[in-house]
Simulated scan of single mutants.
Amino acid sequence: MTVTPADRARGIEPGAPVKVAASGGTVTDVVVTDDKGAKVPGTVKDGVWTPASRLGLDSAYSVRSVVTLADGRAQTATSSFRTLKPEATAKYTLLPSDDTVGVGMPAIVQFASSVKTPQQRAEVERSMKVTTEPAVEGSWGWLDDRQLMWRPKDYWKPGTKVTMDARLAGLQTGEGKYVGRNDTKTFTIGRSQVSTVDMKTHHLTVVRDGQQVKNIPVTTGKPGFITRSGTKVIMEKVGAMTMDSATVGIPKGNPEYYKLDTKWNMRITWTGEFLHAAPWSQWAQGRRNVSHGCTNMGLDDARWMFESSMVGDVVQFTGSDRPFKPTEGIGVWQYSWPQWQQQSALR
C-alpha cells in the first residue's frame, strides 16, 4: 500500500488529494482526520480522497487507509502529513459594509494585494458564491487584479436580499501567499434612487422609485479639472471632512491648491470626486462649471442630498468628454452586460 502524501510529509498544498495505491487488494476506504480527531469531509473514488473544501494552512492531518484483499480480509495503514505554512497571508474584505444599499452596489471581494495569475483569479471565482432572493441574473468580473465584483444584468430591484459566501481559505493568490480564512456577508437593496448630473445644463436631477423628486443647481469641474462622464456609485458618506488638494496631486504652492472644510460629502470616485456642499461657489451653481472636479451644491441642497442618499446609489454624469474609468471607482456600470461578462476570469 502506497499513500501520497507520504507519511510525515510537510508543506502539502491545502487542496491536495490523498491518493492510496494498493497491490493485491482494493482500496475500500480513506479517512482523514484533523489534529483533534475530527473527520474531515471529503469523497473517495478509486483510492483518491478529495477534500470537500481546502484544508487548513500549517495544520496536521492523519490518514487511515483500508484495503480489502482478495480473500475478504481488510488491511489498514495509517500515516500523517502537515499542510504548508505560507510565507504571507492574503487578506480580503467583503463589501459593502452597510446592511442596506442602493440599486447600483455590486457584491465586492476587495483583496489587499494582487491575485497574481489568471488561473488564481479563476480559482477565486470558483470559490465564491452569490445567492439572491429573488433570483437575479448576474456575473462576476474583475476591475483589476485586486477587485472582484458581482453585478446583476441591470440595477437591483428594491428589496432584493444578497448573500456572499467566500470559501477562500487555503487558496493561493501569489508566490508563497495564501488566503487564511473564509467569510460571509449579507446585504439588502433599499429603495431605488438614480440621479443624473448634466454638466452642460449644470443641474442634478434625482429620480426615486421612478419619480423625479428633486432638481438641484450644481457646478462641476472647470477646464483643466473636468469632471468625468459615466455611471458612478456613491461609495461612502462623510458628514464633515477636510479636502486637501495635495492628496489628488495639487500640492501647496500650486495656484490651484486648496484646503477646505466641507460638509455633506458623498464620494463617487477614488480620484477625489465628491458630491458636497460648497457655499463659496453658489454664485456659479446652475450657471457655470468652476470646481476642481467635484459636484458642488448649496448647503441646504447638499444636506437634502446627503440625507436622501445611501451608499450604492447611482449617479450618472453626462456632458464632458473625459470618461470615467472603471477602476477609478465602482465602475461596474461602465460596461455593457456582454462586456461585463467578459471581465470574468472564467470566460
Rank of each mutant, 00 (worst) to 15 (best):
T68I: 12
V314Y: 02
K185E: 06
P118W: 08
H203K: 11
T2W: 01
D261Y: 14
A70Q: 12
A6L: 15
H203V: 15
K36D: 13
Q119E: 14
V66R: 14
A74K: 13
K325P: 07
P106K: 02
Y257E: 05
A70H: 10
Q110G: 13
S114I: 10
R10D: 12
A38Q: 11
V101G: 09
L168T: 11
R208Q: 13
E123L: 14
I268S: 10
L299D: 14
G174F: 08
S59M: 09
Y61R: 07
N265A: 13
S113E: 12
V130F: 00
P251F: 09
F225K: 07
D46F: 06
G312C: 02
E328L: 08
G253A: 00
L148M: 08
P152M: 00
Q211V: 15
K19Q: 13
T196W: 04
T219W: 05
M149I: 10
S65I: 05
Q212R: 11
D165C: 04
C294G: 09
V18G: 06
K237G: 03
D145W: 04
V115C: 07
V162T: 03
P134A: 01
S336N: 02
Y178G: 04
L204I: 02
V194F: 08
E137G: 05
K259R: 15
W304Y: 12
T33L: 08
S113A: 06
R54E: 00
V233A: 05
A77W: 11
W280S: 15
A107Y: 06
V63R: 11
D98G: 09
S336W: 06
R167Q: 11
F324V: 01
Q193M: 15
K153F: 02
G331L: 03
A112W: 09
V332Q: 14
P5D: 05
T117S: 14
H276A: 05
T2S: 09
G11Q: 07
V40T: 09
L94D: 02
W304H: 06
L275V: 09
T68H: 07
P152R: 00
D34N: 14
M310W: 06
W283I: 03
P323F: 10
P96C: 01
R10W: 13
M305R: 12
F306E: 02
R121E: 13
T160K: 11
T160E: 03
S65K: 00
T219L: 06
V314E: 00
A122E: 05
T201S: 15
W49A: 08
T132E: 04
Q285E: 15
K129N: 10
G224Y: 01
P5H: 07
A90H: 02
P158I: 01
F111D: 03
T269C: 04
V30P: 00
